[in-house]
Nucleic acid binder design. Structure first.
Lengths: 346, 346
DNA sequence: CCTCACACTGCAAGGATTTGCGCCAAGGTT
DNA sequence: AACCTTGGCGCAAATCCTTGCAGTGTGAGG
């Protein structure tokens, strides 16, 4: 970890000047200040008293957004588990503040977090086909800096980072299978943006289940939309106008709720005329009407696994360090409620 | 701001020992360590390099929990507004981590936040009748330490802290008024815990509206429960078993959703046989069935007002400092949907 | 009762960071 | 053209924190 001297050398100024910049003292030229700050971006300086203060007892939690209730649910579960081990948590949501994830990570690091948990990290949000590895981006740099990280639902085999996840593909498969068993043949997929890896994985499961039966799983049975009720409503609308499915699976409960309301708006009875399956099992899913059939993520267990893994990596007494990353995949659980039923029309 | 020497003197140890405690170095007796840590609680030590580094560009956000979607909504709005001014946010929820608010505040301070916004602070959660001032607790100490704070929905006249709030009493009044105008006379109140000041304020509004008409607003028309769907369901259940109201108002949409499901469970048609009003207007309120009539908080505006106030206090060039606190009260907005209707039975 | 080992603590030396002071250069004034 | 003013920067002293080392006290074992 660099001292002021190191930074001063690189920036080509004296130690005093760096000190003045860091302390926001007057008497430094704006241009010089920018140069020093630029160096500080590459070499995040942590003051002695803080850098040495190893165990701050604080971890960072990064979630993409807060409007989908799964993320607050994950946050609470993670926080509770961390608290039990004496750690407190700092939560950041990257999307709403239109700040990129990397900036947030740097900020957290500068604030002295010991490690972090990423829920649905940015890296899962790229244009890359299933199976291929997305580019590691800045995560490798963090890894080199010795930052301890754990992902939730962010499997990226290319990175040496432990991952805790639900099997999204299996989730897609189970949902579709459930509908097939109810007699549906025309099953649509109300999907999140095509950039989203989880949606692509679910789609793979959906395809697999359909092809197993020789049913159609063509592109025209898939409609994309943003991850919110309005997006789900719009996507379902497009599907109903074109291929008229008798059942749909959705990328999230949020979207499923939108789908339910769109069906209601069109006077379509659920489940009699249209079956709907969601994903996540957010608390509201059971309070919808009809109550939503959905695939539950074992949030508590996943959060516990993620926190435990992070804490173990943080523990200096722990034998295994650096490099022992692994993936832990949980099985989603089908929760059948009222929004799915036998196919009536064909 | 104290140095190690000051802390050492008070704790009655040498500077070296304090340094060792701060750096989590071995070789310090547990008892001695506790004594030093105790002093550090009163005199929060910030390492030289960090304490001087005034503008970190980070503010803290404290919300009581995350399972009620209003709080994530506030958090997002706050975060978005802060980001626009170049500040990033650190979010903490105090209840789920069963850590007390004060600890979290200290932690945030130690992490270098410049100021904080408290949403529904702990202080609103005490056994004190409306009108009387709750004891200021540790907030005055923070104030003395020069910590900048703004409350949301945490009006406490005894403290010199700016507050941004909805008029909860008016909210209770408007909700009840709405039901009265629909012809209801037996109007119950599904309330949060009696410790909660917002619930007590709403109740005051409810009483006022009822007494205006000469209707009954006795204790037996009020049922308390925890702030979640189950609590709402249970509380409504008790009311239905005793006073059989034709309409109820609830302390939050969360509780109202529970009430809706309890009504459904009992085969009571809403709104034909029971009208329900919620509070908050969470996104899901419009996706319930029947869609929930509720009182909306102007979340965006409140968040903007709170952040702007905090940032102004943080600005060293700002003329008004310390002491110029004020309250800003917003008007709740009645959103009529499908869960309320004319009284049928009397 | 003596000795030894061990755990703590303070001392003081050794680094690291802050800051008063003075130098230098650029631009304006007489 | 000489001189003054001012902003910006480095030097070095002052200050603060860290750490190796030695001193002290306590308790167990002989």
């Amino acid at each position: 970890m660099p001292g002021l001297a190191e930074i001063a050398r690189i920036a080509g100024v004296s130690v005093s000047t760096v000190s003045r910049v860091l302390n926001r003292r007057a008497g430094v030229n704006e241009e010089t200040r920018q140069r020093v700050l630029a160096v500080l971006t590459d070499l995040p300086y942590t003051p002695r008293g803080l850098g040495a203060l190893q165990r701050t007892g604080v971890i960072g939690l990064l979630v993409p957004e807060l409007s989908n209730p799964v993320f607050p649910a994950f946050a609470e579960a993670l926080e509770t588990r961390a608290a039990r081990a004496g750690y407190s948590s700092l939560l950041c949501n990257t999307r709403s503040a239109n700040m990129c994830e990397e900036e947030y990570v740097r900020m957290l690091l500068a604030r002295g977090v010991e490690g972090m948990v990423f829920v649905s990290p940015e890296i899962t949000n790229v244009e890359v086909p299933v199976g291929e590895a997305p580019r590691p981006g800045y995560y490798t740099k963090l890894l080199d800096d010795g930052v301890e990280m754990v992902f939730i639902n962010g499997a990226t085999p290319a990175l040496d980072i432990s991952d805790v996840a639900v099997d999204e593909q299996l989730a897609g498969y189970l949902a579709t299978r459930h509908l097939v068993e109810l007699g549906h043949r025309r099953i649509g997929f109300v999907s999140g943006p095509s950039r989203s890896l989880p949606s692509r994985l679910k789609r793979a499961g959906w395809s697999a289940a359909l092809e197993e039966e020789g049913y159609e799983s063509a592109d025209r049975f898939v409609a994309h939309g943003p991850f919110d009720p309005a997006g789900g409503a719009a996507a379902l609308g497009r599907l109903l106008d074109t291929v008229a499915p008798t059942a749909v699976i959705c990328s999230s409960d949020q979207m499923a709720i939108g789908a339910l309301s769109e069906a209601h708006r069109r006077g379509l009875r659920v489940p009699a005329e249209l079956s709907v399956v969601g994903f996540d099992d957010i608390p509201f899913a059971s309070y919808c009407s009809p109550a939503l059939t959905t695939l539950a993520q074992p949030i508590e267990q996943m959060a516990a696994a993620a926190v435990d893994e992070l804490l173990q990596r943080l523990d200096p007494d722990s034998p295994r360090r650096r490099g022992g990353s692994y993936s832990r995949v949980f099985r989603p659980r089908l929760v059948v409620r009222e929004s799915t039923g036998p196919a009536e029309r064909c």
